[in-house]
Design a protein around this nucleic acid. Structure first.
Lengths: 180, 180
DNA sequence: GTTTATACTGATACTAAGTATCATTAGGAT
DNA sequence: ATCCTAATGATACTTAGTATCAGTATAAAC
């Protein structure tokens, strides 16, 4: 849990704002509030949750600015979209290098992992593309599982299923559909 | 390009409809048209494209049925969402086993690859989760690259970039942003 | 400290994507 | 041929996100 990346909201915001200043974006009150709210979430959030939380913090900030800031941060690679269970979530990325996220399906918390620390994964993906004759360009990878803490507290280990690329909707067990 | 999976629209539709019948869904005209349109696309499509193409084929079919059928097929695991470049695309899945997709960034065509044919990839993902202390549950993996055909025809190989999990939006090269 | 140019803002109206409702229709079992 | 009800089309609605634009406040210049 205690990684080497900055995790307290205040310094995260400072880091984000330093980046904006470095690229000569203005430091506005709206941005400060929105970034603070984003940094305070300890887990992925939906745009609606962000909108709500910002409104709760400072009702004078407009909807549009929330989306503008979200989009800006996304374009700067400092926020990323996750696609868990069909719902779009956003999450802050504190690593600047090539990385992906593991999300806990119980508590919703995310962790980043640098790809460079997982050479086998990197080469597996590239190797796969090449084996199919493709020139690899990019990829999307998101891993979902039960985090160490949730394994301890809950009975998280009980219904573990094998890793499966498909979403929740499965085939009907008896070849007959569940009636509504 | 000539894989072992069924690829002509007619037999794909037959296969999809057989699945519906097996699970005691009704075989309706609307579903037939929508599935045929889906099978005729040789590449991922957006919901809007589907809606449009269905309307062009048979104007009497309602918008709602398009979405209903799309959602139904998705819940049956026979259609999947892709997240390329922030735009949601849907694609037919003809493999019933655990698989993922490679999409050509030039022509947009997708190919499926069975995970069981890529043990190293499978174990790399699971190994990664476990190394972080997570109990692996599921994952999302999409690979993008230039397909063999596009490499031949175009100068697809020229601006090849290293595989990178991030989207298109990059840092500003000189630390200064591009002005509008 | 004052001025100035303009990036950014909030309000609002809008589009786009998808869902809920409901009376009507048609699929398929009997 | 009949009947039950899953599925449909039309329509209204919600939700997510974007465009517009006059006004404001930031940061640089003076």
């Amino acid at each position: 849990m205690d990684t080497d990346m900055p995790s307290d909201p205040v310094s995260v915001v400072a880091w984000l704002e330093a980046g904006l200043v470095a690229d000569s974006y203005r430091l506005t009150r709206a941005r400060h509030v929105i970034l603070t709210v984003m940094a305070t979430f300890g887990h992925p959030f939906t745009s609606t949750e962000l909108e709500q939380a910002v409104a709760d913090t400072d009702a004078s900030i407009g909807r549009a600015s929330v989306y503008r800031t979200l989009t800006l941060m996304e374009s700067r690679g400092v926020v990323e979209k996750l696609h868990q269970a069909g719902i779009e979530h956003y999450t802050l990325c504190l690593k600047s290098e090539h990385h992906h996220h593991v999300t806990c399906v119980e508590c919703g918390r995310t962790e980043e992992f640098a790809v460079k620390d997982n050479i086998d994964l990197m080469s597996a993906v590239d190797g796969l593309a090449r084996r199919l004759g493709y020139l690899p360009r990019s990829h999307v990878l998101e891993v979902y599982g039960v985090c160490p803490l949730c394994q301890e507290s809950g009975a998280g280990g009980s219904d573990a299923a094998p890793t499966n690329g498909h979403g929740a909707g499965g085939r009907h067990p008896l070849g007959r559909r569940a009636d509504r």
